[in-house]
């Protein structure tokens, strides 16, 4: 079985994202592997541990994305590939086209696994858009894979949905997006860290993939910081507990809190 996991480099969760001159920036905050993608890697590794096969980490982005790919390698992925001459923009349909072309170039892929979403854009649609480009089923919010038969090309998944758990049967090849319930991501192993530090990561261009990017259809017309909230403190006092409570209640009514 061949599994591709999509890996994205994102600003650290502790980074303060602000708008400066109409552009989103997180200053010099460190960049890390998208935390949701770690769950995707965990799912892929568990599936190959159970059913055999290999896991290829795939990233589309700048050279710095190597760091996220190396993290995936250290966790146990067999290979990593970077498509680097396309800078991700908010238009996820373009990213999805690049990812789909890379999956086709890798060839014989049974599953493409995404994290539920990435913590920068929070769109949670790139996986499904990639599936659409590949013409494969998209199975989202997967919390477990109770059955998988690579030869028969069938898969059964459990989806974590608001109403509870939904069991869905599908066919391979397919695109999955993984939620936290799948299992806590493992730490990189020491042997994995060594392997990752020595790994050569091939870099593909759009030309290598034989595609041209479609025009941008989604763009951010105007971005601004949310207005700052004015917070003031006031201590409500009275001669007795009852008086204090009554004064507090009056104020809450006046502010339309109650």
């Amino acid at each position: 079985m061949k599994i591709v996991v999509r890996i994205k480099l994102v600003p650290d969760t502790a980074a303060k994202v602000v708008v400066e001159d109409g552009q989103v920036t997180w200053g010099d905050a460190p960049l890390v592997i998208n935390p949701w993608d770690e769950f995707a890697v965990e799912a892929a590794l568990q599936l190959t541990e159970q059913h055999g096969g290999e896991v290829i980490a795939l990233s589309v982005g700048e050279e710095s994305s190597r760091e996220a790919l190396k993290h995936a390698l250290a966790m146990g992925c067999n290979e990593a590939i970077l498509v680097s001459d396309y800078v991700i923009d908010p238009d996820t349909q373009r990213t999805a086209k690049v990812l789909a072309a890379a999956v086709e170039k890798i060839g014989d892929v049974d599953l493409v696994i995404f994290g539920k979403q990435s913590i920068d854009g929070d769109n949670a649609v790139t996986g499904t858009q990639t599936a659409r480009n590949l013409g494969w089923p998209s199975l989202t919010l997967v919390s477990a894979v109770p059955a998988l038969d690579v030869d028969a090309k069938t898969i059964r998944i459990e989806r974590a949905v608001e109403e509870g758990r939904q069991v869905v049967d599908g066919v391979l090849p397919a695109v999955l997006s993984i939620v936290k319930d799948y299992g806590e991501p493992r730490y990189p192993s020491f042997i994995g860290i060594r392997k990752a530090s020595k790994a050569e990561i091939p870099v593909w261009s759009l030309e290598d993939l034989g595609i041209e990017l479609p025009n941008v259809v989604v763009s951010w017309s105007e971005i601004m910081n949310p207005p700052q909230r004015e917070v003031t403190n006031e201590i409500v006092q009275g001669d007795s507990v009852e008086e204090t409570a009554a004064a507090l209640a009056d104020k809450l009514f006046a502010e339309k809190v109650l």
């Binding site: 190396k70 990189p188 020491f190 860290i193 060594r194 990752a196 530090s197």
Partner: peptide, 15 residues
């Protein structure tokens, strides 16, 4: 520090 050093440092910190 080498990539290996940094990787180990990060992993142990996370643990």
């Amino acid at each position: 520090l080498s990539e290996e050093h940094l990787g180990v440092q990060k992993m142990v910190r996370e643990f």
